[in-house]
């Protein structure tokens, strides 16, 4: 780190583009993929048809769709994995489908969970209750609700106005409001729960007594406070990291490195679980093995 913030492992000379992989590797990889792929498909096709796990109790038509669904999911799963080998048409299809489906998913979600109940439901409650949300509670202050719902409506129109040929600058107004509110909220909450609370949590006795003098407890307490102080020193921008400040900041960097190493190690577990779950799906739900 050398008291600067370039990363310890950065490669100062990133590789230049390289020629295509050697043909013998390509052949090996392709045959590996084709072989395992055909084995998988064979196994899946031979597996009991249509009892896709949980859906076994469902009616026959449902079961067909479940089978189709599991096959679709399996192919898409393998398609995404294929990106690990190299970019390829199957991955590109998966990517395109994912972009389209997910963009629409969030739009539909926004429409039915935000726009309908919170905007239309306030602007024209009768209509919404009649056609979409019969269980929507009747408001005691319909006038106020209407007025409050008009604000985001107007802001929304201003935001979308940038599509219009003239006066697109007006869309900066709602963006300014969003940023302003965010700034105000975060200013308060970060000082309250991050700044003050963390300071309070650091203020601990530097000596641990557990009946008598607790050696390891004291070491732990000292490490905790020294760690916070040295890392904070690293974050000082006004002073160059030289002399005593530099040495302290260097210790701070060590603390940071241990922190990051530890966080990295802790994360691995979750990532592996996620992958294991995908394999569980392929083996159990699709191939019916294991």
């Amino acid at each position: 780190m050398n008291a600067s913030n370039s990363n310890p492992n950065s490669d100062p000379n990133p590789n230049s583009p390289a020629p295509a992989p050697k043909p013998r590797y390509t052949l090996l990889w392709i045959s590996l993929v084709v072989l395992s792929g055909s084995l998988l498909v064979l196994r899946a096709a031979m597996a009991a048809q249509g009892d896709g796990g949980a859906a076994a109790a469902d009616p026959a038509a449902q079961s067909l769709w479940t089978t189709v669904g599991i096959w679709t999911a399996a192919i898409l799963t393998i398609g995404v994995f294929s990106f690990l080998y190299r970019d390829n048409p199957l991955y590109k299809v998966c990517e395109s489908v994912l972009i389209g489906v997910s963009a629409a998913y969030w739009m539909v979600n926004g429409f039915w969970t935000s726009l309908v109940p919170q905007l239309f439901g306030k602007l024209m409650p009768g209509l919404v209750r009649e056609y979409a949300l019969p269980a929507m509670p009747v408001s005691t202050t319909p006038g106020l609700d209407f007025a409050l719902a008009c604000v985001p409506l107007v802001l929304g129109i201003m935001l979308v106005w940038r599509l219009a040929p003239k006066g697109g600058w007006i869309s900066v107004w709602p963006i300014a409001m969003i940023i302003g509110v965010t700034a105000g909220l975060k200013l308060v909450s970060s000082i309250e729960s991050d700044f003050m609370a963390q300071l309070g949590a650091t203020m601990r006795p530097l000596v641990a007594m557990n009946g008598g003098f607790d050696f390891w407890g004291t070491i732990a307490a000292l490490v905790g406070v020294v760690g916070v102080l040295t890392v904070l020193t690293y974050f000082f921008f006004s002073v160059e990291h030289k002399g005593a400040v530099g040495k302290t900041a260097r210790v701070g960097v060590w603390f940071l490195m241990i922190t990051f190493g530890s966080a990295f190690g802790l994360t691995v577990m979750g990532r592996i679980t996620l992958l294991a779950q995908r394999f569980e799906f392929l083996f159990k739900d699709w191939l019916h093995i294991g």
């Binding site: 975060k186 970060s190 991050d194 963390q198 020294v226 760690g227 102080l229 040295t230 990051f260 530890s262």
Partner: peptide
Amino acid sequence: ITEHIQTAGMRAITIGIALGVAATS
């Protein structure tokens, strides 16, 4: 490591971030 060193490191990072957020806001 996690309870003492990592906690200390994360605390300092959090305090720094809080100041950064406040100043940026």
